[in-house]
Simulated scan of single mutants.
Amino acid sequence: MSFKKIACIAALSLSAISSFIYAGSAQAISFKMTTGIAGPNGETNQGAFSEFTKLPGTTTINFNDGKVPTTGFAKYSFENTSGTSSVRSDVWAPPGVKDTDINKSSYLAVFNGDKVTINLDGYLNYFGIDWGAISANNTFSFYNGNTLIKTFTTADVNPVAPTHGSQQNGEGSGYVHFYSNSTNDIFNKIVISQTSTNGGGFESDNHSFHSGTDRFTGFDPKAVPEPSVILGMLTVGGMFLRKRKNEKLQSVSQSH
């Protein structure tokens, strides 16, 4: 067997393994919760940031200027019937990576039946927030235009959220990553709301947006085999070559 054929077999095997890895993706927006990471320059007093902050195509809004952006890539608008929702800085700011990392920066707070709509200039396949304290009736809704794609509530997220008791009275907090699994789930509008008018707030910080018109691949397992698998393929290829060479030598020997 020629080396070219061995290479073709290896390539087909790699393709099959990659296809197996990608099989079974759900057709819906999903979420994962992590502790997040420190700020771009190692800051630990500005809340947790996304692990994808430096991924090309990602934009992060940290609210450190004390207001929401109303122009540019992401445009925020308040439906502020209670008059209390705002960008603020207080003890309810979402914490950092550790319980002891107190957030002293500004963050976005939504209260008492209010909501904030984020209209985007392009499509996203990922959106992440430092979310906490996660109070009852916090709601996130993702839209393609005016078509609702998916809604997440406190009940979805809080069961997997760690608690930061010293700062948040035992309510869950963490960095939450929402991401698309297919082209059907990309979005260009996000609504952050606190549906209850009986107390509780929706506190979030360090919003990260990743542009994309296809599934988000940041959480994918490796698309190619481990080096040991590739080495194994090369070993098998070498065995084929040696066997073929020995067969040729035996054939020549027997003919004489």
Rank of each mutant, 00 (worst) to 15 (best):
P221Q: 10
T183W: 10
N188V: 04
F187G: 02
D185K: 13
S182P: 06
I186C: 13
Y175I: 00
P227G: 01
S204N: 05
N184G: 08
I230F: 09
S208Y: 12
I190F: 06
S180G: 05
P221R: 09
N198H: 01
H177C: 04
F209W: 12
F202A: 03
G199A: 04
Y179N: 02
P221V: 01
S204A: 11
G218I: 02
D205V: 02
T183H: 13
G174Y: 06
D214P: 04
N188I: 05
G172A: 03
K222Q: 12
H210F: 10
T217E: 14
D220W: 14
K222G: 09
D185T: 06
T217A: 07
T183P: 03
H177T: 00
D205Q: 07
N206W: 00
N198G: 10
G172S: 03
V176Q: 02
F202N: 10
N198D: 14
S208E: 01
K189Y: 02
D220P: 09
S180I: 02
K222N: 15
G200L: 00
E203G: 09
H177N: 09
S182M: 04
N206A: 00
S193F: 08
G212R: 12
K222R: 14
G172I: 04
T197R: 11
S182D: 12
G170F: 07
G218Y: 09
R215M: 13
T183C: 02
G200D: 02
E203L: 00
K222M: 09
G212P: 10
I186M: 07
Y175W: 07
Q194I: 04
I190K: 04
G174N: 06
V176D: 01
S208M: 06
S211P: 01
F178Y: 15
F219Q: 03
A223K: 12
Q194A: 00
I190N: 04
I190W: 13
H207L: 06
Y179C: 00
F187M: 07
P227V: 07
K222S: 14
F216V: 01
E203N: 15
S180K: 05
E203S: 06
T195F: 05
H210R: 15
F178Q: 04
S193Y: 11
V191D: 01
F187N: 04
G218C: 03
V176S: 05
P225M: 08
N198I: 03
